[in-house]
Amino acid sequence: MTTSDVVSTGALLVMVVVALVLLIQYLKLQDIWQIIVDCKTATRWAKIWEMENKELRSALRAEKEHVDQLQRKLKLLQALIPTN
């Protein structure tokens, strides 16, 4: 082998190592990208559930107030009914 062949072979090996490192980095970045996408999806669902929970809590407060109002009316009506 001549010096030129050794240098060429060495350069080829270096290029193969660089290509492998790039491939490994690509695969890692692909995993990171998937994690980011999953987090965005989870965040979107969390916001949706938070809004639904707010609406449900508001509806529950309104129902409780309605029940309280009906109970007050019932007490008033019972007070009007004569007992024997």
Results as ranks from 00 to 15, higher is better:
Met1Pro: 01
Met1Arg: 06
Thr3Tyr: 15
Ser4Gly: 03
Val6Phe: 15
Val6Asp: 08
Ser8Arg: 15
Ala11Pro: 00
Ala11Gly: 10
Leu12Tyr: 02
Leu13Glu: 13
Met15Ala: 15
Val16Glu: 08
Val18Tyr: 06
Ala19Pro: 00
Ala19Cys: 10
Val21Thr: 14
Ile24Ser: 13
Ile24Trp: 09
Ile24Asp: 09
Tyr26Glu: 01
Tyr26Gln: 06
Tyr26Gly: 04
Leu27Val: 00
Gln30Glu: 06
Gln30Asp: 09
Asp31Pro: 00
Asp31Ala: 13
Ile32Arg: 05
Ile32Trp: 01
Trp33Pro: 00
Trp33Gly: 01
Trp33Cys: 03
Cys39Ala: 15
Cys39Trp: 08
Cys39Val: 08
Lys40Trp: 07
Lys40Met: 06
Thr41Met: 04
Arg44Cys: 01
Trp45Gln: 09
Lys47Tyr: 09
Lys47Asn: 11
Ile48Ala: 05
Ile48Asn: 07
Ile48His: 03
Trp49Asn: 10
Trp49Tyr: 13
Glu52Met: 08
Asn53Cys: 04
Leu56Ala: 14
Arg57Asp: 12
Arg57Gln: 12
Arg57Tyr: 02
Ser58Trp: 11
Ser58Gly: 14
Ala59Thr: 11
Leu60Asn: 15
Leu60Val: 05
Leu60Phe: 07
Ala62His: 09
Glu63Ser: 08
Lys64His: 08
Glu65His: 06
Val67Thr: 05
Val67Lys: 12
Asp68Thr: 04
Gln69Pro: 00
Gln69Phe: 08
Gln69His: 11
Gln71Thr: 01
Arg72His: 07
Arg72Val: 04
Lys73Asn: 11
Lys73Phe: 02
Lys75Gly: 01
Leu76Trp: 13
Leu77Ala: 07
Gln78Lys: 10
Ile81Gly: 01
Pro82Thr: 01
